[in-house]
Design a protein around this nucleic acid. Structure first.
Lengths: 312, 312
DNA sequence: AGCCTCGTTTCACTGGATGAAATTGCTCTC
DNA sequence: GAGAGCAATTTCATCCAGTGAAACGAGGCT
């Protein structure tokens, strides 16, 4: 489809249109400047795919669905409804069952939504807040998650930060000992997980992590828990920058970790707390509130909905 | 595709092939005899739909997916991968985000699997057990769920019962006062729900449910809770048959209700317990165990999986 | 038995889906 | 900074996959 900046209302996504978007410059998926336009497309949608998804959605809203009831609700011709159903049956997401008198979804549909329970959900919630914070303080925000014995950085607002000219940090894997994200994860993760990770560190580092070093590390973690944030070891690269990290907690688990980096020389020491750290902590709290909200709101559960006594 | 009975291994579904299936007779979705063959198809699967589902499944398995990583895992050509991704973006299930360096699923994917949480899940678990019971005792088994102020029958093995020649009971809506399913629901549902349903009954029946009748009803529910099963009021149709109902509990909630019906005159009174009721109760316990098992088993959660310390 | 509804099957039609090739943009190394 | 390599996107000729009206058959209801 032809790209038209007027089709995109920046305010609809809680963020003003960037210069790049306003001038209809297409931002690629791996672009390091600007941000992708949610309405950008290279192709028209594939019609049969739209239909199959529509049929699947409708079958999910009914206990038992029939060809006729799906046709009535979707306006798709009956032979096409049958074709879509049989394609979904082929993949195991739906079964046809005359003992039910229709079609129903199977447990296998879980694989079509399982990915949302992880970092995708945190990013979806955190994204507008992180973008807002970068617009406010200029410095880039990162989001990462534990992956084995390292943190993997999954999100970074550096593409819209006016002070960022460096390469990306997406995909980078900061360690658990010296990085801000790693340290804050170790401080706030469940104790059993922390002990397990420390055993892994002992095994990997050998004499580099002797009893004295380990004791110092544990005391550092205590201080981080009390203060609520971690700092990257200043002897590690990039040495001209400071990085703070805070946890994103979802209940008792560390759903993600968040960081901010800035040139040490460009922020007066006595105002770091006010201009960088406190806004970071406030954004963390907002993200956690939003996560808690979507965890407790009523989910789409048709049986619950139908049991309500409707008083008109 | 051409139907070939040899392609279907009845044992794979825990049930022997019926005569109808063995002779390749096609059983329709609304057929009242025999059972549908899971491998029966009128059309070949739609290729673009298969690809889109495959792409969606793969994106769900990754935190952040790229065109190249999806191509590597699916063997789908890159332009086609982009086409499928953009179709899924069109429906809101996936977003492209250069701040993540790739594509990720959104919370909207929940609507592709939400339907499984209800009666579909109970039927999926209960189906082989109910079929086994009908094969054992000959009589048809029904499964229903509460829908507003009535039970809706969602499943019935009458299509394979050798003693059933009547019309179907699928879609029938037995009431909460006199039917076996309704009474057992009222006995075992949470107290708040029971009181709400009784208020609805008072409103609807007026003087037909005076204080004496209501008190008798409550005492009956007490007896049903103690005995573990309900019986249909013998004065209601079909009068020549007896129906027993038991609850299917999932935790504290009544996930479904299950019933068996038989000709009263064809089962000696002194052997009803042994030949009909006890097998029904045993099947109920097996279904509940299976439901509990799938509720607690580890779900597909990629972040949890990746955190395990792999000791090779 | 007759009529209506639902589910399935047929098959002529055509434009939508395809993917190799080209192009463009990004990453990494020296 | 330059250049090679890789990733993402775009182009467009091709053709058969997806379509759905019509027909058919099975099931429901009176």
């Amino acid at each position: 489809m032809e790209r038209d900046v007027d089709d995109w209302d920046g305010d609809a996504f809680g963020e003003p249109a960037s210069d790049a978007a306003q001038t209809s410059v297409h931002i690629r998926t791996n672009s390091r400047r600007g941000h992708t336009n949610p309405l950008d497309r290279s192709y028209p949608p594939v019609n049969s795919v739209l239909r199959a998804l529509h049929v699947l959605k409708v079958v999910n809203t009914k206990a038992i669905a029939t060809v006729n009831s799906i046709h009535a609700e979707t306006a798709i011709p009956r032979p096409t409804v049958v074709r879509m159903l049989e394609t979904l049956m082929h993949e195991g997401y739906i079964v046809r069952d005359n003992m039910c008198g229709g079609y129903r979804v199977t447990g296998k549909v879980a694989e079509l939504s399982a990915g949302y329970s992880g970092i995708s959900r945190v990013i979806e919630v955190a994204r507008p807040l992180a973008i807002g914070l970068t617009r406010q303080i200029k410095w880039p925000i990162g989001l990462g998650e534990i992956d084995g014995d390292e943190i993997e950085i999954r999100y970074w607002t550096g593409t819209i930060s006016p002070v960022v000219h460096t390469n990306t940090v997406l995909g980078k894997r900061p360690d658990l000992l010296k990085s801000a994200m790693g340290r804050v994860y170790m401080a706030f993760c469940p104790e059993q997980e922390r002990e397990r990770q420390i055993r892994v560190l002992r095994k990997r580092l050998g004499s580099e992590l002797d009893q004295v070093a380990e004791s110092e590390f544990r005391h550092m973690l205590d201080r981080i828990r009390r203060s609520g944030f971690a700092t990257r070891d200043p002897k590690t690269e990039p040495t001209r920058m400071t990085t703070f990290g805070v946890p994103i907690l979802d209940g008792a688990s560390v759903a993600a970790v968040m960081s901010v980096s800035f040139f040490t020389s460009s922020v007066p020491l006595n105002s770091v707390r006010e201009t960088v750290l406190d806004p970071l902590i406030e954004t963390r709290l907002n993200i956690e509130h939003a996560l808690a909200f979507i965890s407790t709101r009523p989910h789409l559960d048709t049986s619950l909905q139908r049991e309500y006594d409707v008083n008109l």
